[in-house]
Amino acid sequence: MITAFITLGLFDILDILLVAFLLYQVYLLIRGTVAINIFVGLFLFYLMWLLVRALNMELLSSILGQFIGVGVIALIIVFQQEIRKFLLILGSRYNVNQKFSLENWFTKDEVGFQEQEIASIVTACEHMSKSKTGALIVIAKNSDLQAYADTGKIVNSRVSGTLLESIFFKNSPLHDGAVIIANNRILAARCILPVTDSTNIPGSLGLRHRAAIGMSQATDSHVITVSEETGNISYIMGGNIKVRITGADLKKFLAGDYSGFIV
């Protein structure tokens, strides 16, 4: 036990480390969004209240204290989008039912694509890249994407390059939206995805890429985009994006080799 001006024990050190870790996770969650400015403003407001109390300014301290007293409710109102995003991450990435279900236990090794399915996706993306056909393909990992699939049209078909190209063909009724691939099948098309509110995204990336990044932030899904303007293929995971990749790069990523995914 360390004794100086204060008494610091093992649990005190653990408490400080846990609070520091929690604040760091909050920072990562709101980094690059307008919420970071609100967070800094609230933190400065709290420091001002502590200073006023230390100077025994009773009237001002009482007024500020009323705001501090309802601080939790204010935080919920101000950061409702960020709190919802945090709960979505917890629910999708640390789903207890998925981790302990018997079905997941016996099929946990069957998480990747077969070579034929990889070849179909890569070929379709290369063709759409050459013809500058916009595409947005979501690949489910552990998260249950049924809620997102329900926003579109259920397809439930085997993965086929021809089908993917047909879906994203400009005159197709299903081209506007995302295709969701889950359990090695095309689950749905024309799906609506959550759009990221990050301010760090280059202006050259449009709404399709923002939706891809938002989906990868809200779930553990990996997303492929083909730009309608440039034909560039991009791969997105964990909120990070690798732009202008080749068909060979895409094939490696789909096979689970992310060694070239430099952000």
Rank of each mutant, 00 (worst) to 15 (best):
L29M: 05
F261N: 04
E165N: 15
A211C: 10
T107Q: 12
A140N: 08
S172D: 08
R244W: 09
K99M: 15
N171V: 05
I76W: 04
Q25G: 06
F261L: 06
S227N: 10
I186K: 00
S234Q: 01
T3F: 10
I180Y: 03
L17Y: 02
A147F: 05
L29N: 00
I186M: 02
N142Q: 12
F113Y: 07
V138G: 08
A189T: 06
Y258K: 06
R53Q: 13
F106L: 15
F261P: 12
G203Y: 07
C191T: 13
A188V: 02
L23A: 13
G69P: 00
A135E: 07
T107M: 10
G203R: 13
I154V: 03
Y148T: 03
S143H: 04
E165Q: 15
N142W: 06
T196E: 09
S234K: 01
P194H: 04
I30W: 00
R210L: 15
V223P: 06
R210F: 08
V179R: 00
F168W: 09
G256E: 03
M48N: 03
Y148D: 08
I13F: 04
D15K: 07
R31K: 11
C125M: 09
V179P: 01
A4E: 08
I154M: 06
E126N: 07
N142F: 07
I118Y: 02
R190A: 15
T3C: 13
A182W: 04
A178M: 07
A149C: 08
T3G: 09
E110G: 11
R158F: 03
L28M: 12
T33K: 09
D249T: 02
F100K: 07
T225C: 08
T196Q: 02
T162H: 09
Y24W: 11
Q80W: 05
K130I: 12
I6G: 03
S172N: 03
A255K: 04
W49D: 07
D15N: 13
N184D: 14
I181G: 07
A211P: 00
V243E: 14
G152D: 12
R208L: 14
I121T: 09
F79L: 12
G91F: 05
T33D: 05
F100R: 12
V111P: 00
L51K: 02
I118C: 11
Q114H: 07
T7G: 15
G161P: 09
